[in-house]
Design a protein around this nucleic acid. Structure first.
Lengths: 169, 169
DNA sequence: TCCTAAATAAGAATCATTACTATCTAATAA
DNA sequence: TTATTAGATAGTAATGATTCTTATTTAGGA
């Protein structure tokens, strides 16, 4: 699939999901999605904002952020790094893996023999010198599952106000 | 190994590494390391600071951060999340893996069949509901490798002043 | 075309982290 | 034991990414 084809496929999905969710397709949103979908470098919000100023001199950084999170909610993009914003420290220097809760930021260690045995994949060499391999399971911890009001379906849009985590889901 | 034994092993290493590096063992440093080494929850700097105030009412947050990074430099703890601080976005919703440069924050996609085939490990279930598995190779990208002044050994302590990345190594 | 909820721009506010600076102290030498 | 000094600390200001608030604008259906 060429780069152009990839972009088109992604755009189709964008339109379809946006319509399904009743999301307005504004020029800003379209431009933001196009930029992310057409890039291979996983730009951050500032970078996107800088680039979009060419076509939208007045676009605000806030719009970029809001749009990106909205797209993430629709499953059209994902945020790399994680929602948690505080640095966390780990004194376990043996090989192990982490479980991370998307809602509250909880992190717990576990050890899985198969995952611990994984070597650095050869594909990594093309980008530089690889040093280690991190494996992380993301999900929702037991406590957060319990907190969720019973009878709630999908699309939990409650946004915790004060928490060490910055974004939901 | 009991929890207490684990802590003792870690403390031994702490003393050994600190001595080897000529690092002063201050009461604050010892307390900070003990707290991280004895915890299973990967506390953040604020949390550590709050707890340590009981024994060191005057301890500053800055000391906590400096110490944690120092310990990280010695390989006694690792920072979870990543050094990069800006959120990055990814429109590739097919299963894939990332290569991340520790120095400049570069992120690139690649796909490795074996890694893509990995299922959620059963150990994750004890913590809650797992949703996905992320695999990340960390290292130094080609550009950053080239930048490094030739003739440099280990311990590159140059701290980039202005960069999207917050910490070295 | 008109209406209205949703989206935007602008800028203030927040929060984690780092920088700065004036002490302070542990380790070494005298 | 005391003096010396590089390394550490506390306190606080600064920075930078992200989010919030508010007044205004706009997409998209009636």
């Amino acid at each position: 699939m060429t780069k152009r084809e990839t972009l088109n496929v992604r755009l189709e999905r964008f339109y379809a999901e946006a319509r399904k969710a009743g999301l307005r397709i504004t020029p800003q949103r379209l431009a933001i999605f196009k930029l992310v979908a057409g890039s291979v470098s996983h730009p951050g919000a500032e970078e996107i904002h800088r680039q979009l100023r060419r076509s939208f001199p007045m676009i605000s950084l806030d719009t970029v952020y809001r749009t990106l999170w909205k797209l993430a909610d629709l499953g059209l993009v994902s945020a790399l790094g994680q929602e948690r914003i505080q640095l966390r420290f780990d004194a376990n220097q043996n090989r192990h893996q982490h479980f991370t809760c998307k809602r509250c930021g909880l992190i717990r260690d576990f050890t899985n023999a198969r995952l611990s045995a994984l070597g650095i994949p050869s594909e990594a060499a093309q980008f530089g010198q690889a040093e280690d391999l991190r494996v992380e399971v993301r999900g929702v911890c037991s406590a957060c599952l319990r907190k969720k009001a019973p009878g709630e379906g999908k699309n939990n849009n409650s946004k915790p106000k004060t928490s060490s985590i910055r974004r939901r889901t």
